[in-house]
Design a protein around this nucleic acid. Structure first.
Lengths: 367, 367
DNA sequence: TGTCCTCCTGACAACGATGTCAAAGGTAGG
DNA sequence: CCTACCTTTGACATCGTTGTCAGGAGGACA
């Protein structure tokens, strides 16, 4: 280390060669920087910075000169370069991880998040997960390397403990749809067990006792909750669940359709079906139509189905409110960014039963 | 170390105090930088940089030391800081602008783009437009301030000439769904006129002569193309178009429903309808059902309708292929980034007629 | 006229990384 | 033993911007 007190030689300070030539303002092929704008406007870069950022104490004449130069060069400030030095270090960027952006539920969440973000000049990275734990960690790492201000995550891996250091550093992380494991942080979820119970009660009230559960993989937390809600409601109603068909591991239309067909190939087909997910519901509908049983087998699905009201019968569902989930998640992230230090908050968004016909069909035997 | 080039005054150059203390490695609340990792590993920052980026000429022992330190600190490199200096200046980021991320067409495009991007370690910003020209420019500016490597845009404003300087700087811009105006650049679009003609021909072949066109606002380029395809096909068939109802300006279910009801309140209701868009198709379906005319009025929609095959009648549509559009758009962007200097390319993705019932209903009078 | 204050302005360091370059150490060949 | 060369390493400048700070201009006041 070489610290010297220089009082004497004012001479050779400032030896920095600096790029001799003024930045060429006319070159249209290279991206203009503040220095180009400053050179064209005949002011210092810091003054340009002040004008671009609307800082006070710049004369009207200077503001106009700078703006004219910026317009002429089609100058756009480099947000990331600024962030490097800026006090708050915010990139005005959010990372959103969903099952798949090509999926109505995720689309609605995304849209709500985007609306909240756009109001604040924040851009949103969206990434799809496809239920692949490896993708989850890669996507999160990709977000973090880009220094997003906050994360809104649908997760699928066993544990999110890997996020603990990031959380300690103050990055807000909000989990949507599914709750985190191995970590405590804000979450916004549907009331899965309650919604499933609601659907089940609805079917019980219409006289069904032989109910079937068709659901997603048990590894998914929401699927487990829905299954629990289904079974517990039956328990409360005093219906023996031992012999009722509980099929899990369905994750698309094809597998759900096959499972339904198999159910009706057995000797005791159900009089009512609770399907725990969007795509499963659609698979069930297809199977029931093929079997010609869609008018005598009751069906309530979890999560709404597009055009469910135009089908015959209309599809009764327990609807989630993805828009609301997205809105609340964004609200949570921004509250944290604004300094909210409260303990992790779990926000539960209630579900809504939408009656359309398929859930009100009476049991076949009683007809 | 104090290396000075000037031979005379070793004195007062290089007074940089430099942070005296080694960066505190233990502080878990601040984000670690390369200097932290370097200090912990006992090497220089440039060596850390080499290890992180997999550059050659680092000894195995050093690599291990650095990786251990990085792991211990949960270090994530700052991609944007690196880009500032990096030779290629790539942020490994793409900007995608669509009508609304909460919309099946956009979702499919988005997903295809994301898949292509993820393969290359590129993250995608997605933003919604809502047919608002002001939003278009704001969103593009937000992308550019973040220095995206390329843009994939659905546009709505009169002219995209404002992008010319950016294009000159070499930023790849690919337009999807709608072609640009006032600017020449790559585009990937459906064959709108051809698809509309296909739908129209289909209805003509089933004996209809009194066709109605229900479409989106004429300000939207694709809507104009579809209208043109409809009218031209009628012209080719020698059907007088003068008295046929051509309704425009519809952009959601409600307006489409009302327009349909109005059509049937007139004295010469159509025997067949061509609806030029997703939401319009659904509005028409609702109106026809209310009127009880869904089994005697033929309908072909442009763009697929979710669960269209499960409705009664099934909805015949001219389907677009958004996934393919997204895939090709991403391919174009990456080709440009990889140095493709060919003139702007217009890629047309053909449409497909999907026959499901509603388009094959014969004219009522002939029944 | 001198002092103080406010307004405006620009030089400079710093943010976290990478490109350049030179130095240190080792090995091989003469 | 010297030279040439390769491998490994780190000091330093730099990318485009903002924070800090100091200096100059101008007005108000004594």
């Amino acid at each position: 280390m070489c610290i010297v007190k220089s009082n004497e030689h004012i001479g050779d300070r400032n030896v920095t060669p600096l790029s001799e030539s003024e930045p060429a303002a006319g070159d249209t092929r290279s991206r203009p920087t503040m220095r180009h704008v400053a050179a064209l406007a005949g002011v210092g870069v810091k003054t340009v910075s002040r004008v671009i950022n609307g800082e006070p104490n710049v004369s009207a004449a200077t503001i106009e000169k700078v703006n004219a130069a910026a317009r002429k060069l089609d100058y756009q400030p480099d947000l990331h370069a600024g962030n490097l030095r800026r006090a708050d270090g915010r990139t005005r960027t959010l990372g959103l991880l969903v099952g798949s952006v090509d999926n109505p539920f995720a689309g609605a969440v995304h849209r709500a998040v985007e609306d909240a973000a756009a109001d604040r000049g924040v851009a949103v990275f969206a990434s799809s997960l496809d239920d692949d734990p490896a993708r989850e960690q890669e996507a999160v790492a990709a977000f973090l390397r880009r220094r997003v201000d906050g994360l809104i995550l649908t997760t699928v891996s066993e544990s999110q403990a890997y996020l603990a250091p990031e959380l300690r550093r103050g990055t807000p992380v909000v989990f949507v749809d599914r709750e985190p494991a191995g970590l405590t942080s804000d979450s916004v979820v549907s009331d899965n067990a309650d919604g499933a119970a609601l659907a089940t009660r609805h079917l019980l009230e219409h006289g069904h006792r032989r109910l079937a559960y068709l659901g997603d993989r048990a590894g998914i937390q929401t699927a487990r909750e829905r299954r629990r809600g289904f079974l517990e409601e039956l328990g409360r109603a005093g219906v023996a669940t031992r012999d009722l068909p509980v099929v899990e591991g369905l994750h698309d239309e094809a597998t759900a359709r096959e499972a339904t067909l198999a159910l009706f190939a057995g000797d005791q087909p159900p009089t009512a079906i609770f399907s725990s997910q969007n795509l499963v519901t659609i698979g069930v509908i297809r199977a029931l139509r093929e079997l010609g049983r869609h008018h005598d087998t009751a069906l309530v699905g979890f999560d709404d189905v597009p055009l469910g009201d135009l089908l015959d019968p209309g599809i009764t569902v327990v609807a989630q409110h993805p828009q609301e989930i997205g809105r609340l998640a964004a609200e949570r992230v921004f509250a944290r960014l604004d300094g909210d230090e409260a303990p992790a908050l779990r926000t539960v968004v209630p579900t809504t039963l939408i009656v359309r016909g398929s859930g009100e069909l009476p049991p076949k035997a009683e007809r």
